[in-house]
């Protein structure tokens, strides 16, 4: 598997690894994938009272491109409103990381993780 330098950079120096308190009302948590498929992503966002994402953390079990996809989206999410965050598409992730075709599903999973984290946050706030 030959990866782009961007994937290798995110893999070797992943951004925003860690966990936020999932019981905090400001935190939304999304976990997608399954270990038997080789990929599990956990993405967390912390949303300020102004509706802007203040912080994002991830943990990923998966190949290099799964780790890079989730690392990249934590960078992109910070400073975005929830509506802006929802517009992030898997194709943007795949383009940015120059993912090979067999690894496109990693970017799909990252998009799913964003949507799941936002849905969890909104569920906490009755939306």
């Amino acid at each position: 598997m030959s990866y782009s330098n961007k994937v290798i950079d995110h893999y070797e120096n992943p951004r925003n690894v860690g966990a936020l308190d999932k019981n905090d009302p400001h935190v939304g948590t999304g976990m997608v994938g399954a270990p038997s498929c080789g990929d599990v992503m956990k993405l967390q966002i912390k949303v300020g009272d102004n509706g802007v994402i203040e912080d994002a953390k991830f943990k990923t079990y998966g190949c290099g491109s799964a780790i890079a996809s989730s690392s990249l989206v934590t960078e992109w999410l910070k400073g975005k409103s929830l509506d802006e965050a929802k517009t992030i598409k898997n194709s943007q992730i795949a383009d940015e990381l120059e993912l090979p075709p067999v690894k496109i599903h990693c970017s799909v999973l990252a998009e799913d993780a964003i949507k799941a984290a936002i849905a969890d946050y909104q569920a906490k706030h009755g939306k």
Partner: peptide, 18 residues
Amino acid sequence: VENFQWDSHDTQRDVILH
């Protein structure tokens, strides 16, 4: 972890794409 209820939708899709 082994008996955790994983999202079967993603499971299906990943099997196809892998």
